[in-house]
């Protein structure tokens, strides 16, 4: 199961994969390329061996931390145009409270731990790498 892909992210497929009659709550978060200060596209690159491992660890840690039943994370690589999805989080649980909290925690943690970089391309032809944050290691608690 690839969590890092250069293919268009398929939310419907992730929803189908996590279908569960015991879950009364489904939260889907998608991050998309937005029109911001002249951005026309973003090129996402990643270090795949560590990114795949980190995404799998965050899924498992989310399941352990919150009262939910399913968590899936996928991240896109490659040159994405405005509106295209770069990341999708799908969480299912019995109730909305922990399901919302889990999805928020998962995307926040993904941004801290997964080795992905984005280079913004602007309408005027310039490009620049987005200033990121020092990668965090898996917490022990």
């Amino acid at each position: 199961m690839n969590r890092l892909t250069d293919q268009t992210l398929d939310i419907e497929s992730l929803i189908a994969q996590t279908d569960d009659p015991d879950c009364g709550a489904l939260v889907v978060f998608g991050g998309a390329v937005r029109l911001d200060d002249g951005v026309k596209a973003i090129d996402y690159t990643a270090y795949a061996p560590l990114a795949e491992k980190a995404l799998a660890e965050i899924e498992q840690e989310t399941l352990q931390r919150f009262d939910i039943r399913h968590c899936r994370l996928v991240h896109r690589t490659g040159l994405l145009k405005l509106g295209e999805l770069s990341v999708v989080v799908v969480v299912r649980g019995g109730h909305r409270g922990p399901t919302f909290e889990a999805a928020r925690w998962a995307i926040d943690t993904l941004k801290q731990r997964v080795p992905v970089w984005k280079e913004e391309y602007y309408l005027d032809g310039r490009s620049t790498f987005v200033e990121g944050q020092h990668i965090q290691e898996k917490s022990e608690n």
Binding site: Y44, Y47, P115, G132
Partner: peptide, 10 residues
């Protein structure tokens, strides 16, 4: 060795 500069995924 793989160098991992500050990350900016999402």
């Amino acid at each position: 060795l793989v160098l991992i500069p500050p990350v900016s995924g999402g």
